[in-house]
Design a protein around this nucleic acid. Structure first.
Length: 427
RNA sequence: GUGGGCGUAGCCUAGCGGUUAAGGCACCUGGUUGUGGCCCAGGAGAUCGAGGGUUCGAAUCCCUCCGUCCACCCCA
């Protein structure tokens, strides 16, 4: 309940797992967004924004009906017309839908797209985990070559680098495709079927739902079995093995270091071949700040011609969390430059006009609060951190002048109203 | 969904069964006639997360709920 029950007036607060982005955090958001846009553009990606909600079936089919995300984390609802809709739990399905809907097959392939948009998951919140969070995502659709996997990984690594994040590591794996994975999953099943009594309760559930996840278990007792389990990378079909080898040599060429993580599995059903995950330096429970992979079957699953795709999503809130942890300095946003103080009714009216003139000259200006003494107005100006106070009283009005006070050193001079704009510009 | 810590003004904290809940920061005003930052004085701001219970009496004890943080699950 976002509304607290009370006797009289109840106060509202943000719904669980959501947060306000306050002005003091704006430098971070701005920095991350602008850096992301710059890097994406540099790689030839163009922005796309899709609706925050879509037909529920898009996610059920795309992400996979058996996954945790779809099974228990999707915000799903019926609108007043009876349509079944869902808040997007991730970004890729929307973009693929848009690719099909707008006939992007007829554009030069691959189509390179990015977005910065909110996603929603009904999950229990904790540090770095929210019910609404923002992902910067990238999708390259229409090219199955490993080269494009290398490209999106390079893009994401460049993004973190441009942000100034240190100590990021990349985990990389190939989970095969429809030609080789089913056989592997079968061998895994038969391996575990004789040893089910030796694994944890969670793994017994995983055995039914998604045996691949058993390899990812952190439970002590499951480790020996994991160590002995068949390894997927040994059983990739030739095309998958070649794809993976090509990707690795391309990453080597780019001097992007990575750790091959045979146990790395992702939460969506649509991944094929390449999967990867970037982890921040600081060990927290939220071990991933960006992750993605290849999804060669997804477009077809959504009703299109077989079309390969690859991409990633990276959590902006987690990026900011790590920027703060690492004390990465943010570019400061400019403060208001001029505070127009006024000392009489007439001066108050004149100050409105004066402030407009400054703003039309692209100088940020605020007008002092009504009913405040000059002392209070200057104190106010000081608290706001403005550079100049423009003082307007009857004396100034009579002469068509304004008193300009430099708040850094307290120096004052009077100048004609018409010279104020020039007087407060860069200097 | 599971387990645990925490919830006193915008923020940080004191009070831990007994008169009108205390302090710091921030905010507002004033320290005479038109001037900031330091200092001084004053002011406003809290039904002590919400609801219920125990008690002559509860911010203080008990229960429920909500929120938050941490861990698990999962994930960005």
């Amino acid at each position: 309940m976002a509304e607290q029950e009370g006797k009289g007036a109840s106060r509202f607060q943000t719904p669980r797992g959501t947060a306000d982005v306050l002005p003091e955090d704006e430098p971070y958001w701005r920095f991350v967004r602008e850096t992301g846009e710059r890097i994406c553009h540099r790689f030839g990606y163009r922005r796309i924004e899709t609706p925050m909600f879509e037909a529920a079936g898009l996610f059920l089919r795309g992400v996979g009906a058996g996954t945790d995300i779809v099974e228990k984390e999707v915000y799903i609802f019926e609108d007043r017309g009876g349509d079944k809709l869902a808040l997007r739990p991730e970004g890729t399905a929307n973009v693929c839908r848009a690719y099909l809907e707008h006939g992007m097959q007829s554009l030069p392939q691959p189509v390179r797209l990015f977005y910065i948009s909110p996603v929603f998951r009904y999950d229990r919140p904790q540090a770095g985990r929210y019910r609404q969070h923002t992902q910067l995502g990238v999708e390259a659709i229409g090219d199955g070559e490993a080269l494009v996997d290398a490209e999106v990984i390079d893009l994401l690594a460049s993004f973190y680098d441009a942000l100034g994040l240190a100590g990021i590591t990349l985990q990389l794996n190939s989970i095969g495709d429809s030609a080789c994975r089913p056989a592997y999953v079968e061998s895994l099943r038969s391996y575990y079927s004789e040893r089910l009594d030796q694994v944890c309760a969670d793994c017994r559930a995983r055995f039914e739902k998604n045996p691949l996840r058993m390899l990812d278990c952190k439970e002590e007792r499951c480790q020996p079995l994991i160590a002995e389990a068949p390894v997927l990378s040994d059983r990739l079909c030739d095309p998958c093995a070649e794809h993976f080898a090509a990707l690795r040599s391309q990453l080597d060429e780019l001097e992007i270091s990575y750790i091959v993580a045979p146990r790395l599995v992702r939460g969506f059903d649509y991944y094929t071949r390449t999967v990867f995950e970037f982890q921040p330096a600081e060990e927290g429970s939220q071990s991933s700040i960006g992750a993605g992979g290849r999804y060669d079957g997804l477009i077809e699953l959504l009703g299109g011609r077989p079309t390969p795709g690859t991409g990633f999503g990276s959590g902006v809130e987690r990026i900011i969390l790590n920027l703060k942890r690492q004390n990465v300095p943010m570019p400061a946003l400019p403060a208001v430059r001029v505070y127009v103080a006024h000392l009489s009714e007439a001066a108050q009216r004149a100050s409105l006009r004066l402030a407009r003139r400054l703003r039309e000259g692209d100088v940020a200006a605020v007008v002092g609060g009504g009913g405040r003494s000059l002392k209070a107005q200057l104190r106010h100006a000081d608290a706001l951190g403005v550079r100049y106070a423009a003082i307007l009283g009857d004396q100034e009005l009579a002469k068509g002048e304004v008193t300009l006070r430099d708040m850094l050193n307290g120096e004052q001079r009077s100048l004609p109203e018409s010279d104020l704009l020039a007087g407060v510009r860069d200097g």
